[in-house]
Design a protein around this nucleic acid. Structure first.
Lengths: 193, 193
DNA sequence: GAGGAATATTAATCTAGTTTAATGTTTCTT
DNA sequence: AAGAAACATTAAACTAGATTAATATTCCTC
C-alpha cells in the first residue's frame, strides 16, 4: 500500500532485491496518528524508529523551568524518533508530536535487529542515518554559537522553506531558540528594509 | 608498549581474544604531538580516529567572523577527531589541537574498515562511540537552550573537574559559549556568595 | 631573578534578546 | 455568521551577556 515512499527513500542509499523488499514489508508497522497526538513522550522509552509517509511532526524538550524547546521538525520522507532513547533504550529527553494527521512506518528495536541479520545493507543504511543525525546536531551547535537570531532565521527559511509554511510561527521561534515576539520583530525588520 | 590503555578501554565494552588483540595492534599507529600542534585542521579531511593515551586536546571551530568556539576537550581515554569529516571523508569543520604534549593511537579509515572485517565486534564498539557522540551533541543543544551561562559553568565543572584544572579559563569560556570576561564575573559571583 | 608573553580580573558602556501586557488577526466550531 | 480559541504583532521596560579598555597576575624563558 503506502510503502512505496519508504522503498524509494531506501533506494536512494542502498540496493534491495525483491525478496528483501517483501521481507522488509513483513517487519514494519503502519500507524496513523491524529493531529496533536504524541509518538514519543519525554520520560518514556522510545520503542520505534519512524519514517514519515505523510504529515508533519515536531520534536521538543521541556526543560526544568517548564519551557519548550523545539529540536527538529519532520515531514514526508524524514525519519523521526528520540534517537538517543531508541538506541540505548533509556528514557526519552524529547516529545515527538504530530502537528497534522500523520502516517508513519515504524520499526521496532527487535524487528530492526532481525532485519539487520536478514538484510545486512540496512545496517549500512541506518549507520548513514545516524551519521547524518550526528552531523546535523553538530552543525546546530555551531550555528547557535556563531549566528545571530536573524541569521539563524534566514538559514532556516532557506533550508526548510516547506516547513515554514506548515508550522505556526511561535514554533519556529522555539526552534530558533528565541521568543515569538522577537521573531515577529525580526520578520518586521526583514520586510521593511 | 603503550597500547594497554586502549585495550582496557575496549574491554569495557566488548570482549577481545588474544588473536584479535594482536591483529588490532598491527593496524594502529602511535603518534606523538608536541604542544599546540594540530591533529586536524578545519578544511582538511580528517584521516584518523584517535584515542588519547596521554595529553589533552581541544576541538574548536572558527566561524565566519573569525571567532573561535570550542566544541569539546579530550584527555586520557577519550576519543577525538572530526567525526563528521572522518565518517564521510568531507572537509573538517573543526580544528583539533593539542594543549599539552600528546600521545595518540590512530585508526585510519582503511585500517578501520579492514578491522571491521577481521574483528566484527569492533563495528559494534564504534557504533556505541558514535551513539555516545550523538547523545552528547544532543545534550549540549538542550543545555545551551535551557541553561544560563552560570548553570552551564557549574554543570561543566561538575562533569569535567579534571579538565577545568588543565586548560586556561578563556578556553572554558569559549566552550561555554561566553566571553572570558563574563566567566570571570561568574566566578567572582560564585566565590562571594 | 628580570622581563616579556600569556592569562585573568575589574568596571563602564552597550546591545541582542526577554518579559510583560495590550491589541489585532486568523481559524475553528457550532 | 458569531463567538471563542489559537496565533501574531507592537511597544515599553528590563536583563544577560558582549565589548572595550585598562590593570593585575601568573608563567615562561634567558
Amino acid at each position: 500500500m503506502e510503502v512505496q515512499p519508504l522503498i524509494d527513500h531506501l533506494s536512494r542509499y542502498v540496493t534491495l532485491s525483491d525478496v528483501e523488499i517483501s521481507l522488509l514489508k513483513s517487519r514494519i508497522t503502519f500507524r496513523k496518528y491524529p493531529r496533536n497526538q504524541f509518538v514519543v513522550q519525554q520520560g518514556d522509552i522510545c520503542r520505534h524508529e519512524s519514517f514519515v509517509v505523510s504529515g508533519c511532526l515536531r520534536t521538543y524538550h521541556i526543560d526544568r523551568q517548564g519551557n519548550e524547546h523545539i529540536i527538529m521538525f519532520a515531514v514526508e520522507d524524514w525519519w523521526t524518533s528520540d534517537l538517543g532513547s531508541f538506541i540505548s533504550q533509556t528514557p526519552a529527553n524529547y516529545n515527538v508530536q504530530c502537528l497534522e494527521p500523520t502516517l508513519l512506518i515504524q520499526f521496532s528495536q527487535e524487528n530492526l535487529e532481525t532485519l539487520y541479520q536478514e538484510i545486512p545493507v540496512l545496517e549500512r543504511f541506518f549507520r548513514i542515518i545516524l551519521q547524518r543525525a550526528y552531523v546535523a546536531a553538530d552543525k546546530r551547535i555551531i550555528q547557535n554559537f556563531s549566528l545571530t537570531a536573524k541569521e539563524r532565521y534566514l538559514e532556516f527559511r532557506n533550508q526548510y522553506p516547506q516547513i515554514e509554511q506548515r508550522v505556526p510561527q511561535y514554533m519556529i521561534a522555539s526552534y530558533l531558540g528565541i521568543t515569538k515576539e522577537f521573531l515577529s520583530k525580526i520578520r518586521h525588520q526583514l520586510m521593511t528594509e
